[in-house]
Write a protein that binds this DNA or RNA. Structure first.
Length: 909
RNA sequence: GCCCAGGUGGCGAAAUUGGUAGACGCGCUGGCUUCAGGUGCCAGUAUCCGCAAGGAUGUGAAGGUUCGAGUCCUUUCCUGGGCACCA
C-alpha cells in the first residue's frame, strides 16, 4: 500500500474492473426507489471536453453515486445531440461528412468521460442522428401534425445569411444569430412551425410546480410574456367633409352615419373605418391625447385614401422609409422618436374626445394590434413622442408622493388615484381597470384579454444535417404525412450537402430523395427542410427510459417508472430554448396519454462556468476589431513575446491585457481533463472541481488548486497506510458492545459528524462544503495519530471505523481512490455496492459546549461547559467571568439573555 | 427602463432557525527535514494600536428593528446575467 496518492498506479485498473463488472449498468430492482439523474444532452464538438464540461458532469456523478449507495435504482445516461448546425458547420470547414465526424467526436467524449470516472450507463447511449432515434422524432412530429400543433405557413422569418438558414425567435440574440453572431435578415418563406403558443398559459402555470432556479423560471415567464389588458375599438374621424365621399367609395356599405360632432364626420365602427388597440393601462384612457399606428398597419391605406396629396406623400414616404431600417435599429430604445400625423382622428370611447392618429415606428405591427392609445402622462415612450410633436400631456393618475405634472418624464405608477377621469375620479388604478373593462364589455366595444409575447416555434431549417420532416407535398398543393410504417424518412447519404444562398434546402437538390410515389400512386415531392436541432433534444430524456425499443418511442410503463428526471444539470444558457421546448413536448405527450408526467424535469440545477485566462492584444493601426471587443485575441506564445517586449521597453504596458473568458477552442484558453488527469489524476481533478467554489458560481481556472486537491488525497493515503497494520475489520460488531473512552471518542465524533454533514451537503448541492468537511475530518483523525497508542483497543476500533467510513464518504467524489483504499484495507468489491454510511446523533454530539459570553452584544469571553449545562449554570458561570466583571464594573446589569448551549449576553448600563 | 443573481481577508470561500464572522483550501511568512526542491511536516496569517496581555475596527454604503444583524426592513451604490419602443 503506497503512502502517497499515485493515481497512475491504479486508475486504469479500476476503470477496466468497473467496465468488466458492468458496474454502471442501470438496475431496475423491484421495491427500490428510483432516481433519474441527467446532464444536458451535449453536442460532441471536435474540441473535446474541457474542465468546464466536467463542472457539469462531476457533481451529477456525485449525486448519482451517492443515490446508488443509498439503495436507489439509478438511471444516469448520456448520449449525443449530434444533429444540427454546429456539427454541420464543423464538418464543412473540415471538408468531411458530419455523420462519421460526430461519431468519432462522440467516441472521444465518451473516452474523456470514462477518464474522469463518470458513472454513465453507456448501454443506453445513442446519437440523435441515429435513424433508430430520429425515426421517433419524426413520429412525434406526425403526432403534433395530427393534433394541429405542427403547421406550415408563409412567414416573415429570421434568416441568417452566414448559416444560410432560418432561425427560431429564441435563436436570435439582440438581432444576431446565436451561433455565428451575424445580423439576421427578414425573409418571406413558407416554414414549419410548432404551435407552442397554444401551451403558453400552461407553460407559465406549471413553473410553480417544479424545483428550478428562480432566475430560470423568471426568464421563461418573461419570454412567454403574459400581459393582461383591454382590447377595444376606436372610431376614426376625419378632418373635413371632402373625405366623406372618399370613404363612401371605400366602404362596401354606402350608408354613412350622421355626424355626432360639428367639426367631424364620424364613421360608425360597425360600418366604416375603425381600429382596435390593446392596452394594459385602460385606467389611463382619459389621459389619451393621441393614437399611434404602426407603419405597416392596414388602416394607413384607408386613411391615405381620404387625405390631401401633400399629406399622403408625407405619410407614404415615412412608411416606406421605415421599411429600410433594420429591426435591430428600429427597436433600439435610444433612438429618438419619429412619426407623422395621418390627418385622421380617433374617438376616445370614454369621453368622446377626438385625438390625432400618428404613424410611428415605435409601434410594432407584430405585437398586440399594431395600434396603441397614447397616454404621454403615464408612458415614457408616449411622453417622449408628445414632447417632440408638441402634443398635450394630461395627468390622470396621482400619487401623494409624486408630482403628476413632472415635466421631464412620464409617471408610470401602477398604484395611485385617478384624476381628470370624469366619473372614475377617486378610484384606484386597480379599481378603475376593473370598472372600465366591465364598462367596455357591457357596451361591446372592447374586452379584457390576455396576450403573450411568445410566438410559435419555427422548426424548419434549410440545412442538410438534421432530422427530415416526414411530409410529402402532392402536385395539387396538398401535403400529407409519410405513413408511420415507412418511418424513418432517412437522411440520404450524399457527398455534397452545403447550404444554398437562395434559401433552398440541400435536400432539394437530390431527386432520388425528393421524388416519391404516394401510396395511391400519385407523384409527390418530399419536404426538403429538416428540423432544427432543438426538436431532437426535446424528448431524448424519454428515450433513455427505454432506448432500444423498436416498436414504440418508449414503453409507457418504463417512462412512468423513471420520469420525471429527478435532477437535471446543465448550463443556464438554455433557459428559453431547450428547457422551454422540452416542457412543451412533454405536455403534448402527456395530453396524448403517452406520459404520466406533465413536467419533464422536477429539479433543475445550473452549474457555474469555468473561465480560462485569455490574452488579448491592443490593435495596431489599421487593424480592425470585432464588434464588442476591446482587443484582439492572441495565443499565449504571442502574449509571451509581447510581454518580453514590454519588459525591454519596446512596447508599452497597455498593449497587452488578459481577461477571463468562457473556455473555447477559438480563444485558445481550453484546459482539458486529459492534461489534468495526466498531471494530477482524475480524483484530484474531481475533488478540485467540487471544492473550488459553490456549484452555481463561475470559477477562474487555476492549476494550483488542483495541486491542493492532490495534497489532500496524499494525506488520505498516508493516513490509511498508517492505520492499515492495526486495522480491525470487525470494528462494527466490537463497537456495538464495547464502550469507547479516551481518544477514540473524539475520532468517532468527527466521523459521525462528517457523515451527517456530508449526507446533507450532497443533497443540497453543496459540494464545496462536502469536500471541506472531508478535509476537516481528516485533520481531526490525523491529529489524533500523533502520539498514537496502538495498544489502546478503543482507539484502534475508532480508527478502523474512521478509515472505513471515510473511504465510503470519499467514494462519490474520488471513486478511483476510494476503491483502491477499500481494497487496501482488505475489502472486496466496489465502494459503489456498499451501503452509504449512517451516523448516530449521540456519537456525533459534543460532550462539551463552548459558550460565548457577551457584554452588551460584544464578545468578552468564551467558557467551556459540559454539554448538559443548564441555563442557570451558564448564566452563573458567565457572570463570574473575570472579563465580564471588568466590563460591567460601574454598570448596572439590566438583564441576562441565555441561548441554550450557545451564548450568554449580559446587558449592562 | 424592467426582471433575476451577487458584493465577506492577498485569493477561492464558510457561516441549517438572527446568537463566538472568516471554517476549509490557495497564497504568503518563519521554522524543521533534505545534497537539493515546484516534497513532507510544524507554527503564524482580517485590519489598526501594542513587546505582550489586551483594546478598537470590521461582511459595498447610509439608516432602521433587536439584548444581539453578514443574515430581517428601508434607501442607495457597484458587478454579473437575462429581457427590452411588447403598448
Amino acid at each position: 500500500m503506497p503512502e502517497r496518492y499515485e493515481p497512475k498506479t491504479f486508475e486504469d485498473k479500476w476503470r477496466s474492473r468497473w467496465g468488466e463488472a458492468k458496474l454502471f449498468q442501470t438496475r431496475e430492482v423491484p421495491g427500490k426507489p428510483k432516481f433519474y439523474g441527467l446532464d444536458f444532452f451535449p453536442y460532441p464538438s471536435g474540441a473535446g471536453l474541457s474542465v468546464g464540461h466536467c463542472r457539469n458532469y462531476i457533481p451529477t456523478d456525485v449525486i448519482c453515486r451517492k443515490k446508488l449507495m443509498e439503495g436507489f435504482n439509478v438511471l444516469h445516461p448520456m448520449g449525443f445531440d449530434a444533429f444540427g448546425l454546429p456539427a454541420e458547420n464543423e464538418a464543412i470547414s473540415k471538408k468531411t461528412h458530419p455523420s462519421p465526424m460526430v461519431k468519432s467526436y462522440g467516441e472521444n467524449y465518451k473516452r474523456q468521460m470514462d477518464l474522469v470516472g463518470i458513472s454513465y450507463d453507456w448501454s443506453r447511449s445513442f446519437f440523435s442522428s441515429d435513424p433508430e432515434y430520429y425515426r421517433w422524432t419524426q413520429w412525434i412530429f406526425e403526432l403534433m401534425y395530427k393534433k394541429g400543433l405542427a403547421y406550415r405557413r408563409l412567414a416573415k422569418v429570421n434568416w441568417c445569411p452566414m448559416d444560410k438558414t432560418v432561425l427560431a425567435d429564441e435563436e436570435v440574440e439582440g438581432g444576431n444569430c446565436w451561433r455565428c453572431g451575424t445580423a439576421v435578415e427578414k425573409k418571406d418563406i413558407p416554414q414549419w412551425f410548432f404551435k407552442i403558443t397554444a401551451y403558453a398559459q400552461r407553460l407559465i402555470d406549471d413553473l410553480d410546480t417544479v424545483d428550478w432556479p428562480e432566475g430560470i423560471k423568471n426568464m421563461q415567464r418573461n419570454w412567454i410574456g403574459r400581459s393582461e389588458g383591454v382590447e377595444f375599438d376606436m372610431k376614426v374621424a376625419f378632418e373635413n367633409r371632402d373625405s366623406e365621399s372618399a370613404i363612401r367609395e371605400l366602404a362596401s356599405d354606402s350608408q354613412i352615419p350622421t355626424s355626432d360632432s360639428d367639426d367631424f364626420v364620424v364613421i360608425s365602427h360597425e360600418r366604416g373605418p375603425h381600429f382596435r388597440v390593446f392596452t394594459t393601462r385602460i385606467d389611463t384612457i382619459f389621459g389619451m391625447t393621441f393614437c399611434v399606428i404602426a407603419p405597416e398597419h392596414p388602416l394607413v391605406e384607408t386613411i391615405l385614401a381620404t387625405v390631401d396629396s401633400a399629406r399622403k406623400a408625407e405619410v407614404y414616404s415615412y412608411c416606406s422609409a421605415t421599411k429600410e431600417i433594420s429591426d435591430i435599429d428600429r427597436q433600439a430604445t435610444s433612438r429618438e422618436k419619429s412619426g407623422v400625423f395621418t390627418g385622421a382622428y380617433a374617438v376616445n370611447p370614454a369621453n368622446g374626445k377626438h385625438v390625432p392618429i400618428y404613424v410611428a415606428d415605435y409601434v410594432l405591427m407584430g405585437y398586440g394590434t399594431g395600434a396603441i392609445m397614447a397616454v404621454p402622462g403615464h408612458d415614457q415612450r408616449d411622453f417622449d413622442f408628445a414632447k417632440k410633436f408638441g402634443i398635450e400631456i394630461i395627468p390622470v393618475i396621482t400619487d401623494s408622493l409624486t408630482s403628476p405634472n413632472s415635466p421631464h418624464q412620464a409617471f408610470e405608477a401602477k398604484d395611485g388615484i385617478l384624476i381628470n377621469s370624469g366619473e372614475y375620479d377617486g378610484l384606484t388604478v386597480a379599481e378603475a381597470q376593473k370598472a372600465l373593462g366591465e364598462w367596455m364589455e357591457g357596451l361591446e366595444i372592447g374586452e379584457r384579454i390576455v396576450r403573450y409575447k411568445l410566438r410559435d416555434w419555427l422548426i424548419s431549417r434549410q440545412r442538410y444535417w438534421g432530422c427530415p420532416i416526414p411530409v410529402v407535398h402532392s402536385k395539387d398543393g396538398d401535403q400529407s404525412l409519410v405513413l408511420e410504417e415507412d418511418l424513418p424518412v432517412e437522411l440520404p447519404d450524399v457527398e455534397s450537402y452545403e447550404p444554398a444562398d437562395d434559401g433552398s434546402s440541400p435536400l432539394s437538390r437530390i431527386p432520388e430523395f425528393v421524388n416519391v410515389t404516394d401510396p395511391d400512386g400519385t407523384l409527390g415531392q418530399r419536404e426538403t427542410d429538416t428540423m432544427g436541432g432543438f426538436a431532437c433534444s426535446s424528448w431524448y430524456f424519454l428515450r433513455f427510459c427505454d432506448p432500444t425499443n423498436s416498436e414504440h418511442p418508449w414503453d409507457p410503463s418504463k417512462a412512468e417508472y423513471w420520469m420525471p428526471v429527478d435532477c437535471y444539470v446543465g448550463g443556464a444558457e438554455h433557459a428559453v430554448m431547450h428547457l422551454l421546448y422540452a416542457r412543451f413536448w412533454t405536455k403534448v405527450l402527456f395530453d396524448e396519454g403517452l406520459l404520466s408526467v406533465n413536467e419533464p424535469f422536477q429539479r433543475l440545477m445550473n452549474q457555474g462556468q469555468v473561465l480560462g485566462l485569455t490574452p488579448y492584444r491592443k490593435p495596431q493601426e489599421g487593424e480592425k476589431l470585432q464588434v464588442g471587443e476591446e482587443g484582439l485575441l492572441i495565443s499565449f506564445d504571442e502574449a509571451a513575446e509581447i510581454q518580453a517586449k514590454i519588459k525591454s521597453g519596446e512596447l508599452d504596458g497597455d498593449s497587452l491585457f488578459y481577461r477571463w473568458a468562457r473556455m473555447s477552442k477559438s480563444k485558445g484558453n481550453v484546459v482539458t481533463p486529459d492534461e489534468m488527469v495526466d498531471q494530477y489524476g482524475a480524483d484530484a481533478l474531481r475533488i478540485y472541481e467540487l471544492f473550488v467554489a459553490p456549484f452555481e458560481s463561475d470559477v477562474q481556472w487555476s492549476n494550483e488548486g488542483v495541486a491542493g486537491a492532490t495534497r489532500f488525497l496524499n494525506r488520505v493515503f498516508r493516513w490509511v497506510s498508517e492505520v492499515q497494520d492495526y486495522y480491525e475489520p470487525n470494528w462494527e460488531s466490537f463497537l456495538a458492545t464495547e464502550e469507547i473512552v479516551g481518544k477514540g471518542t473524539g475520532i468517532r465524533r468527527a466521523v459521525h459528524r462528517a457523515t451527517k454533514k456530508i449526507s446533507a451537503d450532497i443533497d443540497r448541492f453543496a459540494f464545496n462544503t462536502y469536500v471541506s468537511e472531508m478535509m476537516k475530518c481528516l485533520n481531526t483523525v490525523t491529529d489524533s495519530l500523533k502520539n498514537a497508542d496502538w495498544t489502546d483497543r478503543g482507539f484502534i476500533l475508532a480508527m478502523s471505523e474512521a478509515v472505513e467510513t471515510f473511504v465510503l464518504l470519499l467514494a462519490p467524489a474520488a471513486p478511483f481512490s476510494a476503491d483502491e483504499l477499500w481494497e487496501s484495507i482488505g475489502r472486496v468489491g466496489f465502494t459503489l455496492n456498499v451501503h452509504w454510511p449512517s451516523h448516530s446523533e449521540s456519537i456525533a454530539a459534543e460532550d462539551t459546549i463552548t459558550v460565548a459570553v457577551q457584554v452588551n452584544g460584544k464578545l468578552r469571553d468564551t467558557i467551556t461547559l459540559g454539554a448538559d449545562a443548564t441555563n442557570e449554570e451558564m448564566e452563573a458561570i458567565a457572570l463570574a467571568s473575570e472579563k465580564v466583571i471588568i466590563h460591567t464594573s460601574g454598570k448596572q446589569i439590566q438583564k441576562v439573555i441565555v441561548i441554550p448551549a450557545k451564548l450568554v449576553n449580559i446587558v449592562a448600563q
